[in-house]
Each structure stands twice: as structure tokens, then as C-alpha cells.
Design a protein around this nucleic acid. Structure first.
Lengths: 339, 339
DNA sequence: CTGAAAGCGCTTACAG
DNA sequence: CTGAAAGCGCTTACAG
């Protein structure tokens, strides 16, 4: 075993001081050409790499970004991480990932853990429980301690910080307006309970589109799903008991379940029922029929969030001006709608 | 802004020494009850949390695990991370994730970056390029420096370390044997090029199953795909030009593409062509028909890998005995096969 | 041109 | 019972 070599060892070996070694490796002009060469050659030979931890302690920055998300087994979140990773890597940052598992407590614990010196800042998306409790003191605490936070997708307006979102309401509005223009009469909505911020906004977009086209919203066409694991039954009920010719679903899972249920009930998609989903993930691409969907560019969200965070980290002055970046969405047309 | 408080500040505030503060907080019996109480109360008030970086430097361990995988936008890998996170968290470890993007160079850079003090050990799955080049010096280097590595899924036998895999050959053998027992005559294989270790092993399992049942392998029924992005064409060709009644695909994507292609060619699945895939991911669950598949328990792989790594990290003696853990797989029967 | 000293935030063996 | 000192691995202002 060949342990990692330190400045101290190099200094001893070469019989010079640690300071001289350090300066030589940083190519300081204080040091003679000769010494520099010698030290550099030696360091190379022994494959010297400065210890990140020591540097972090000294510089008071870790060059790492903390990511806290509800789940990773979610194509959208994986996609965002991928985007963050990309720009973080380019700028010499590492990425620590923690999962809240949709739990408030885990979110708090992870945040505090990472805030104790491990990261320079955070990129996060709130857990469901956090959104439900509306308790954001942990995030405010961290910001107060001088660590910037960028919130994305599942955000809150109660915390002042940078945010990266899509215009959920507008995107839903566009999707539903498409249906209306195509003369669909009974447009159902399959959404989440209201405390999920993005679900609520998408619901609002649906309602707004109906209202602006002077169509009365009908409560029995709106399904708010609490328990995602068992959405099957309520969706069956929805489709069975109503004359529905179009469905707007606020996520992929609801969309694919609606399609499968419709098929099972003997209806044809998109002929009898057209479906538009949300999030252009794996399911939308590989379902049969493939699903028309609002594409929510996760990679871009991640990239943008990372850019904003790193800019703030590397800016000298404290800038109290927070931005909310809105990533554009668009409808990706596939087989679950007719054109 | 309220910066994080340090021992030094507490010491100054309370007019005692740093050592005394440190010991009080660790509840040392060296310190008087009174002082301890006072310090602890004060620390609580100011929400003192020891600085992880300082601890890492002092203790020479970071309590973080480095994960290097080819991609995160891959349900299987996301699943493994999830498993790792779970046990890491339980044991007080954090997780740094780096992506190699299937590139050898990125894998090396990331590994070296993290090895410079940021993590205590690694869990990794090799990039395609690494498997192709068969260059593993970077991994050996890290192990040599005393940092344990656990390889999973895409591993190599050229490196001595702990490994977590499934029995890819056996799993493929089982799947193909199922077809044979069901009297399927022309069983096609859709696989990757041979340098992808798991692809190769699954191919071997296919061949072995045929051989043991005294069926001659037919080259025109074996499709090795290089460019995953454009597998569509070659799969169409395969299905069009041959009398195939069963397909074994070494991943989900190939399986779903085979199904869609078959449907497009007017064949019914599973009646005309039965399909078994590999990796029980999102696609297999939501495709129509849903796909019978070899389930590769990613969560369990991640958990196991993390357990092995942490055990090794926390064991005192250097243990040269490496294990290769084999996670059991099983066939999950769905609609793409008849029973 | 080189090196001793101080310091980042902590712990702990040792002295008093 | 308390505190000064050394040390983890590094950098840099300062002295010589």
C-alpha cells in the first residue's frame, strides 16, 4: 500500500521547508527556477494531489454543491441531477446528493448535515411533507448562515432565494386550450392534491383555460389523487362514469394509467379519448400509444440552477437580488392525441 | 446574517479555553458538571454544529462515499443509488455522486478528484469505454492508496476488490430455458456488443441454454447492437427477415423496441412473438403489453454494496479477503409472454 | 530565495 | 478540573 503523499513528506524527502514546497507547486515566482523544477518533478513522480479537505478548511469553501430532492427514482429528478452535474463538473464542483424520501424530517436532517461544512450551497426541490407543513425554517436558517439555496420545481414563495421553475399554470393552460380548440367537449383533469405546489398550479391552468373559453368547470371531471399507489381505481371510476373525450393529467403516471384504463374499458386512444400528460419521461416515450405531453426540460432546469448557484458562490459582493428563472415548456405531440 | 458559531467563539464568549469547550460538548468526565451544563446550554442556544471538514481533517475520514456510475438517467442506476443512500444514511454517511457519461477519461478524472481526500471509499460501475479499453489502473491506484472500492453490475475480474453482481449468465439462461420449455422454436437474441460485460454474459447464458437443450444457435437470430440510439432499424430487419416466435432482449429498451416493431409488422405480442427483457424498470411496467423481464433488484444491489463498503471502512484490520456477492434475480411474468 | 509562524476548526495526550 | 500544545494538510503574510 502506497499512502497518499503530503507536502510534509515531500519537504522532508527534499530537505526543504513545507512552505517552499507549497509555493513551488503553485509555481510562485518567489521560488528559484531550480527548486521549483525539482519539487515539481518529485511531486509528479509521487503523484502528489493536494488534499481537498485541507484546502476546504483553509479556503472556507468546499467546491461542492448539495442537492436535496424527494426521490431519485424519478426520471425527472434524475434528469435534473444530470444537468446540475454537467455544469458543476465544468466549473470544478462536486455534487453531494441526499434524498428526503418525501419526508420533512429527512429533509431537515440532510440539510443540516450538509450545512455543517460539507457544501457551499444547495439546490433543492421540496418534499411533499414540507410543502404540506409549510415549514421552511431549516432553509431560512441555512440561507441566514450565508449559504445560497436555489429551489427548483417544487418551490415555495415563502422563502427568499433563487428559483428555477417552469410556468406550470401556463403549460397546463396551453395543453387544455389545445383540447378546447380541437373541439373536445368533456375534458377531464387528473391531478394531485392541492398542497403539491406544481399540482395546484397545473390545476389552476386547467381551470383558467376552461374559464377563458367560457366553459363551465365540472367537478365530477376533476380527480384529485392523494394516494398515487392506488390511483387505478379512482381513474377507472372517473372514466367509466363520465362521457369524457379528453384527459389532461398532471404527470406521466396518471397519463399512462388513464390510457391503460381507457383501453381496458374498450375505448380507443386517441380516437375515443385523447390524452395529454406532463413530464416528458420514459413512460411517455415508450407507452403504447406514446403520450403527448408537456415537456419539462429537466436537464435545462438542472443546468440553470447550477449556473445560478455557482455564479452566486463566486460573486464577491452579497447580492440580495434574487431571480426566478422560468424554463420554457412545450407540447410534444405523440400518438395519444390526434392532430 | 448569522454565521455558524465555532468552538473558538464559544470559548471566548464564556471565557474558558477551547479544549474545555470541546470536552464539555463531548460530555467528557474530565469536566465539571457545572461547566459542561453551561457550555452545552450555550452551544444549543447558538445552534452549534461541529464543522465536518475540520473533523474530517482531524479524523482522517470523511464519512462520505463516492459513487461513480455511467449515467443517472437510467432507472437501474437511480435505483442502485437509492439503495446505497438508504444504508449510507442509516450509518451516518453521505454520498457524492459523479457521472462518467460512459467516458473513460471522465471516470478517471472523477475518481482522482474524489480520491484526493473527499471520500473514504467508492462504489462504482464501469463506463463502457473503460470496459472496452480494459484499463483499470485508476481503480487499482485508489485501492493501493488504501481506499476500498466496491464494483457493481459492470465489473471486471482484473481488479481485486469487493463486487456485487447478479448472475447475468444464469438469469439469461433461465429466461431462454423458459422459452425452450414452452416449445418456442426460433428464439432470437437482441444483445449489446461483447465488450459490455453484462451483455456478453447474457449472450453466453442464451447460448448455453440452447446448447444444453441441443438446439443449434443460429447466427442470423442473434443481433448485437452497437449504437443504441438507432437500434430500431436493425431490429426491424431482424424481425422481418426471420421466422421468430420469441425474443430475449438484454435490456428494457431492446425489449420494448422489439415489441413495438413486432406490432408494427402486424404481429401480435405475445401470441405471434413472445418477449422477455432484462431489468425490471419503468418501461417494462408501463409498456403495452407490459413486459416479462428478469428483475435485477437495484435497490438490493445498492444496499449490499453500501453495506460491504461501510463494513470494510469500519473494520480495524486490513482484510484482504474480498467477496463477490451475487444478488438473486427472478423472472417477473407480465403480458409479453403467455403462461 | 527560503522558511518559520499563524491560522482554518477541531481533538486529545499531557501538564499543572 | 482546566488549559496549553501539537497535529490533521494546506496557504500565505511576514522576516530574514
Amino acid at each position: 500500500m502506497r499512502r497518499k503523499v503530503t507536502l510534509k513528506q515531500i519537504a522532508k524527502e527534499l530537505d526543504i521547508s513545507i512552505s517552499t514546497v507549497s509555493k513551488s507547486l503553485r509555481d510562485s515566482h518567489e521560488i528559484s527556477e531550480e527548486t521549483r523544477q525539482k519539487v515539481q518533478a518529485f511531486a509528479k513522480l509521487y503523484n502528489y494531489k493536494p488534499n481537498n479537505i485541507a484546502l476546504s478548511l483553509k479556503n472556507k469553501k468546499t467546491k461542492t454543491i448539495g442537492i436535496i430532492i424527494p426521490e431519485i427514482v424519478h426520471h425527472f429528478f434524475a434528469t435534473v441531477i444530470s444537468g446540475i452535474e454537467q455544469v458543476a463538473n465544468e466549473k470544478g464542483y462536486n455534487v453531494i446528493v441526499c434524498l428526503s424520501d418525501e419526508s420533512f424530517d429527512k429533509e431537515v436532517i440532510n440539510l443540516e448535515m450538509l450545512a455543517s461544512g460539507s457544501t457551499d450551497g444547495f439546490i433543492m426541490s421540496l418534499s411533499k411533507e414540507t410543502q404540506q407543513k409549510k415549514d421552511f425554517h431549516h432553509i431560512e436558517e441555512v440561507i441566514n448562515q450565508g449559504m445560497p439555496v436555489v429551489l427548483f420545481d417544487r418551490i415555495t414563495n415563502d422563502v427568499f432565494c433563487d428559483k428555477v421553475i417552469i410556468d406550470d399554470q401556463q403549460a397546463a393552460y396551453d395543453a387544455v386550450s389545445f383540447f378546447i380548440e380541437k373541439k373536445y367537449k368533456n375534458i377531464a383533469l387528473i391531478t394531485t392534491v392541492d398542497y403539491v405546489s406544481v399540482g395546484k398550479l397545473r390545476t389552476e391552468g386547467y381551470l383558467k383555460a376552461l374559464k377563458e373559453h367560457k366553459i363551465a368547470a365540472q367537478n365530477h371531471l376533476i380527480l384529485k389523487i392523494e394516494d398515487i399507489e392506488h390511483c387505478q381505481d379512482s381513474i377507472t371510476e372517473l372514466l367509466q362514469n363520465n362521457e369524457i373525450d379528453a384527459v389532461f393529467a398532471v404527470n406521466e403516471l396518471f397519463a399512462v394509467t388513464a390510457i391503460k384504463t381507457a383501453l381496458k374499458l374498450g375505448k380507443k386512444v386517441p380516437v375515443d379519448i385523447a390524452v395529454i400528460g406532463f413530464t416528458d419521461g420514459i413512460i411517455s416515450q415508450f407507452s403504447t400509444p406514446t403520450i403527448t405531453t408537456v415537456s419539462q426540460n429537466g436537464i435545462k432546469m438542472g443546468q440553470k440552477a447550477a449556473k445560478i448557484l455557482i455564479d452566486r458562490l463566486e460573486k464577491e459582493e452579497e447580492d440580495e437580488q434574487y431571480t426566478t428563472e422560468i424554463i420554457e415548456t412545450n407540447l410534444v405531440f405523440r400518438e395519444s392525441t390526434t392532430t
